[in-house]
Write a protein that binds this DNA or RNA. Structure first.
Length: 616
RNA sequence: GGGGCCGUAGCUCAAUUGGUUAGAGCAUCGGACUGUCGAUCCGAAGGUUGAGGGUUCGAGUCCCUUCGGCCUCGCCA
């Protein structure tokens, strides 16, 4: 086998005259009868091979048989291309390799779709197909670029933490199920009948126990599993950069980790991220943006206009306000271009998805040098109230006011995505820019109406702000936590907290979460015990590596940054997982498959109707 | 569990109000060609319109069911 000496992205004019060996895939071929050209591709680039029958008749004959995606190797001499023959589209376009010795390393079937060099082409191919033939899809330069960025982000992370004295420590994949939070993936135990491991939703308790174990500085790039429905930015199986530090407070954790983020953006994108990053309280984020992960690339703050709406003649507003709701809205600069049908159909349907029962609107217009409202619900507002609304939103001519009257929760839930949608459509920001913010001062608990108890906003191990400890008995909802999320462009890429390290505080929190002593003992007993043996104050964070790489590569599809992702229904189209298993495997695990009607294969094949001993 | 969009040749897409034998580009196969680089030129082959059922003289098109993909609500401490 010819051993390659150079890559296909490497050769330049200065290499002219050198003897080289290249290997790769035949990207395309151009057969002129006499001269044959093959563009040879490896992951570094493309180099043109020339086969001249007058120089090497055998190599030329062989080259004529080559087809796309055959794996080939060639030895030859680097030659400057003649004048006018350069290809400015290729980094190696100034030269070509005149082949003397040629070898076909492997033939290939015609690929099911073409491997395009042009960015954006991958999206044009049916994704189902790309996933089923991932090995072809991954040959596209744009996919390889994403894999490369992912690798580099991981490499920078490892080097960064190593230099700061953090140790990368692995934690178990076969772990204990903790029913809080997301649904667990369960793994049956063969040696312990009727018992199950759970795949970790995160290494949370292990990393805290590592702190109790005196490790002091831990990190891990680790796979986590949550059995919930996927989304465009969410897979059941995902990767975290997991970090934990002892004797650290919020500023320590934020400082170490924002510097990592800045380093990654600088080294990969050459983007300068200003540190320390901006911080914003949870309350401010929710009030101004309706969510705890605001996109700060554009302004468009939400405004509570309940006080103004109360004075209007609009019955819908008044009845919502009387019922304890609010009227909140957003001003879309230049939104006057939306037609009445855009608003009353498209935008109203949009907010309806989030539970909003309607969307009130007014357009802002200038008449005789005076701004006023027109259309929609403007008629319910007196000229003075109109002036107040315009002032409140700092609205300009041709803006659009959109108002939701509902509970505060629903109004925010609807307006936050509406704000982002409008800003995107109205092109109010540079999509290539990045705005970082730490969200801090989260409430420790949120009230769960349905269950009649408090839920942790983050998780039950998050420490309260020390000054608020007194409220544990009196005002649990008013307790702030020492939690922090890092948000970029409206995407939460990481979050963490200072943890509770004192058993009595942990116990009190469990009480408020309505977790009984018995339950706590059964689920977290091992952890509570560890806390009693000298747990240092500690805290940490976890980043979503997938989302980070999505931002770095400019994709909004998480499957693009995962080599072998799963579909919306959790299937791997390449390997066909999940699949049924042999009865023998089930027997060994003492498991029986329960075949409900909805899981039984359809299709009345009488052969399939053999007795099922497992039928319930 | 709910809502929405989509499925036509290997790939990307067409196909008038339901109307003749479902077309085109690329890819594939055969041929021609000394400088191409999205090679070009000539020719060929390529289809259970995701599947099943229905309405109709007639269905890619309309209706129902179903499979699959994507987006989304719920869910994701």
């Amino acid at each position: 086998m010819l051993k390659r000496t150079r890559t296909c992205g490497q050769l330049r004019l200065s290499d002219a005259g050198k003897k080289v060996v290249l290997a790769g895939w035949a990207h395309s071929y151009r057969d002129h009868g006499n001269l044959v050209f093959i563009d040879l591709r490896d992951r570094e680039g493309l180099t043109q091979l020339v086969f001249d029958p007058e120089i090497q008749p055998q190599a030329h004959e062989l080259a004529r048989t080559v087809r796309c995606e055959w794996v080939i190797a060639a030895r030859g001499v680097v030659r400057p291309r003649g004048e006018g023959l350069e290809n400015p589209k290729l980094a190696t376009g100034q030269v070509e390799v005149v082949v003397g010795e040629f070898e076909i390393l492997n033939k290939a079937k015609t690929p099911p779709f073409e491997i395009e060099l042009v960015k954006g082409q991958a999206e044009k191919t049916n994704e189902e197909f790309r996933l089923a033939n991932r090995y072809i899809d991954l040959r596209r330069p744009e996919m390889q670029q994403k894999l490369r960025v992912r690798h580099r982000a991981a490499k920078i992370t490892r080097d960064y933490f190593d230099q700061l004295g953090f140790w990368e420590i692995e934690t178990p994949m076969l772990a204990k199920s903790t029913p809080e939070g997301a649904r667990d993936f369960l793994v049956p135990s063969r040696l312990h009948g009727n018992s199950f491991y759970a795949l970790p939703q995160s290494p949370q308790l292990f990393k805290q126990i590592l702190m109790v174990g005196g490790v002091e500085k831990y990190f891990q790039i680790v796979r986590c599993f949550r059995d919930e429905d996927p989304r465009a930015d969410r897979q059941a199986e995902f990767t975290q950069i997991d970090v934990e530090m002892s004797f650290a407070d919020t500023d320590d954790v934020i400082g170490v980790n924002e510097n990592l983020v800045a380093k990654i953006f600088k080294e990969i994108l050459d983007v300068d991220v200003a540190t320390p990053m901006r911080r914003m309280s949870y309350d401010e984020a929710v009030a101004d943006y309706g969510v705890d992960r605001p996109d700060l690339r554009f302004d468009m703050k939400l405004k509570d206009i309940s006080a103004i709406a109360r004075q209007s003649d609009f019955k819908v507003f008044k009845s919502v306000l009387e019922g304890g709701g609010i009227v909140k809205g957003v001003c879309a600069p230049g939104g006057g271009r939306y037609t009445r049908s855009d608003i009353e159909k498209t935008l109203t349907d949009f907010v309806a998805d989030y539970g909003a029962k309607g969307l009130a609107w007014c357009k802002v217009r200038r008449e005789n040098d005076e701004l006023s409202l027109a259309g929609g619900t403007s008629k319910f507002f007196s000229p003075d109230l109109q002036r107040q609304l315009i002032e409140r939103f700092e609205a300009k001519d041709n803006d659009l006011l959109l108002l939701v009257a509902d509970t505060e929760q629903i109004a925010n839930k609807a307006l936050a995505p509406l704000r982002c949608k409008l800003a995107g459509e109205l092109k109010l920001y540079d999509p290539g820019s990045f705005e970082f913010v730490w969200i801090v001062d989260f409430p420790l608990f949120e009230w769960n109406e349905g269950e009649g108890r408090y839920d942790s906003l983050h998780h039950p191990f998050t420490a309260p702000v020390p000054e608020d400890l007194g409220k544990l008995e009196t005002d649990p909802a008013g307790i702030r936590s020492q939690a922090y999320d890092i948000v970029v462009n409206g995407s939460e890429i990481g979050g963490g907290s200072i943890r509770i390290h004192q058993p009595p505080v942990q116990q009190k929190v469990f009480d408020l979460l309505n977790i009984s002593r018995e339950q706590a003992e059964q689920r977290f007993g091992f952890f509570l015990k560890a806390l009693e043996y000298g747990a240092p104050p500690h805290g940490g964070i976890a980043f979503g590596l997938d989302r980070l790489v999505m931002l770095l590569t400019g994709t909004d599809n998480i499957r693009d940054v995962i080599a072998f992702p799963k579909t919306q229904r959790g299937q791997c189209l390449l390997t066909d997982a999940p699949s049924e298993v042999d009865q023998k495997q089930l027997d060994e695990l003492n498991l029986r498959a329960q075949r409900h009607s909805h899981t039984t294969r359809q299709g009345p094949d009488p052969q399939e109707q053999r007795p099922q001993p497992n039928d319930a």
